[in-house]
């Protein structure tokens, strides 16, 4: 253990290069995700959108209910129908929509709380990073609607002009049939 972080969470320090220690990088990413959660819950969606690269692939596959012998089929693959399969244009459309004043699923808006943790980082070539987190997203809507979504996110990040940008996000919900009227909130 160092700084309260298990040694297993990242690779050895030298693989991250640039003299940045694993622990420093872990803290930097954790701050990035805490900031992201506050942007979402404070409804600063344009700033949130800016955390993603222009070539982003934002993907939430389906989660099938399968037997143990078929676990290779549990997460639907790209090419199958997904819950979200967005590029930056579709993500921008989702955010732009909210400003029209007529996005009824979010007007009045949801009250959300994103709790993000269990961060594990792994180096990718050229200084990129893979970061896996677990999340719980609570959503309250209208008078009495509520949803709890839990799952994992696997991000690929690169530095652009000194800032981390997500260029790939795979969100896997811990759910088969989604117990919500819609997914008008962001993950």
């Amino acid at each position: 253990m160092q700084d309260g972080i298990p040694d297993e969470v990242g690779m050895t320090a030298q693989t991250f290069g640039d003299g940045v220690s694993q622990s420093e990088l872990w803290h930097e990413l954790m701050q990035f995700y805490i900031n992201e959660a506050w942007l979402l819950d404070d409804r600063k969606f344009r700033e949130w959108l800016d955390l993603f690269a222009d070539d982003v692939f934002y993907f939430m596959p389906r989660r099938l209910n399968v037997g143990r012998q078929d676990l290779s089929r549990e997460i639907s693959e790209e090419g199958d129908l997904a819950i979200f399969e967005d590029d930056k244009t579709y993500m921008t459309m989702r955010v732009d929509r909210l400003d029209t004043g007529m996005a009824w699923s979010e007007d009045p808006p949801s009250r959300t709380r994103h709790l993000v943790g269990n961060l594990v980082i792994e180096p990718l070539p050229e200084g990129d990073l893979k970061a896996k987190t677990a999340f719980i997203l609570y959503r309250s809507h209208h008078e009495t609607d509520e949803n709890i979504f839990a799952g994992s996110r696997e991000d690929h990040l690169r530095k652009e002009d000194g800032r981390w940008k997500i260029y790939k996000r795979i969100i896997v919900l811990d759910a088969n049939v989604i117990l919500a009227k819609n997914l008008s909130v962001f993950f």
């Binding site: 939430m60 819950i83 579709y90 997914l183």
Partner: peptide, 18 residues
């Protein structure tokens, strides 16, 4: 078409969520 159908209709669809 896959992205269009999923992003316009479906649980997260820009149209159907409303």
């Amino acid at each position: 078409l896959r992205m269009g159908s999923g992003n316009y209709n479906g649980v997260a669809g820009l149209f159907e969520q409303d």
